[in-house]
């Protein structure tokens, strides 16, 4: 086991190194330059652009820029080109904003998908199963931004309450339970929207896993033994169907930093996804690359965690 962990960590560090090179290359190969360096503003003279280039090390060869960037990153002194703020501080602030949305969204996804999927599997082919399938496909196919607009228009015009942002703007100094509930309310729509796709996919997945397990011999045996219905489905079948999901948990991790560009932009949510998107538009290389690097680290940690979880929950796997 320890040998596995050691080997895995070494492999992942090598992967990370290549990811850092590739992502650096891709971002610099992409057309366009930072807005400070490539303005279509008559007031910018070539000398000033040149000064910006020097200040940002853009006049150096790529490998030197690479060294500068990762040196700064590991010293924690990378600053955004757009506003000169330390990149890590910016990311941390946004991460804290995206986190509640991510947690509520994940909770909704995982808690709703299971009962829906299990019931579909148990009553396979029934009215319930068929309507659940239908709704799942509707939810998968509906474009997120469109669904978001429909919900916002409905809520704003019918319920007449604000839904945009992290809280009602100018709510002022109302009592704290009101402020907490207000925040919860503002979290509701974006996290539902973030969860719809997940619910649709995950409940399908739960259903197929359950169906696969329900067909196994040991389930038939359990049923033949005359065990209660509940016990057959929820102990013998469900427990075994759960195995793949445990490992999926590790893969949620990268979602922490990704955020959702579309949902966050529509709801003016000051989250990670929106910041990353805007950084890309203004070619704020330090910010993009740092987010990219953290995302890569999280993906690798995620796969590592899921590998380990597999070992822990599945007695058939030995390392």
């Amino acid at each position: 086991m320890i040998a596995f962990i050691g080997r895995s960590i070494v492999q992942k560090i090598i992967t990370l190194f290549f990811v850092s090179i590739v992502s650096f290359a891709i971002i610099h190969l992409a057309p366009g330059e930072p807005s400070q360096v490539d303005p279509l503003n008559p007031k910018f003279t070539p000398e000033m652009v040149e000064r910006f280039r020097t200040a940002f090390h853009l006049d150096q060869p790529l490998y030197v820029q690479y060294a500068y960037f990762y040196r700064d990153l590991f010293r924690g002194s990378t600053v955004s080109w757009k506003d000169n703020q330390p990149v890590l501080k910016k990311i941390w602030e946004r991460f804290l904003n995206s986190l509640p949305l991510f947690i509520v969204g994940t909770l909704i996804t995982w808690t709703i998908s299971f009962p829906v999927g299990i019931r579909s599997a148990i009553f396979r082919g029934g009215i319930y199963d068929r309507s659940a399938t239908f709704i799942s496909y509707v939810l998968i196919s509906i474009p997120g931004f469109f669904f978001a607009y429909i919900l916002i228009i409905l809520v704003v015009t019918q319920l007449e309450v604000p839904v945009i942002g992290m809280q009602t703007f100018g709510i002022g100094d109302t009592a704290w339970p009101f402020r907490i509930m207000d925040r919860l309310w503002h979290m509701l729509l974006p996290s539902i929207l973030g969860a719809t796709g997940g619910i649709a996919v995950l409940s399908r997945y739960v259903r197929s896993q359950m169906l696969e397990v329900e067909g196994q011999d040991y389930v038939r045996t359990a049923r033949a033994k005359g065990l209660p219905w509940e016990m057959v489905h929820y102990k013998h079948a469900l427990r075994n169907a759960l195995l793949p999901f445990v490992t999926m948990f590790g893969l949620i991790l990268p979602g922490l930093i990704g955020g959702s560009v579309i949902i966050e932009s529509i709801f003016s949510w000051p989250g990670m996804g929106r910041m990353a998107y805007e950084a890309i538009l203004s070619r704020d290389y330090p910010l993009i690359l740092t987010i990219n690097f953290i995302a890569a680290v999280l993906v690798l940690i995620g796969t590592f965690v899921s590998d380990v979880l597999y070992v822990l929950v599945d007695p058939r796997i030995r390392l």
């Binding site: 808690t111 309450v161 207000d182 509701l188």
Partner: peptide
């Protein structure tokens, strides 16, 4: 979870 989230509506001020 759904009830907890949905009830927050009653705390939010309309315009």
């Amino acid at each position: 979870l759904s009830l907890l989230l949905l009830q927050s509506y009653f705390w939010v001020p309309t315009y």
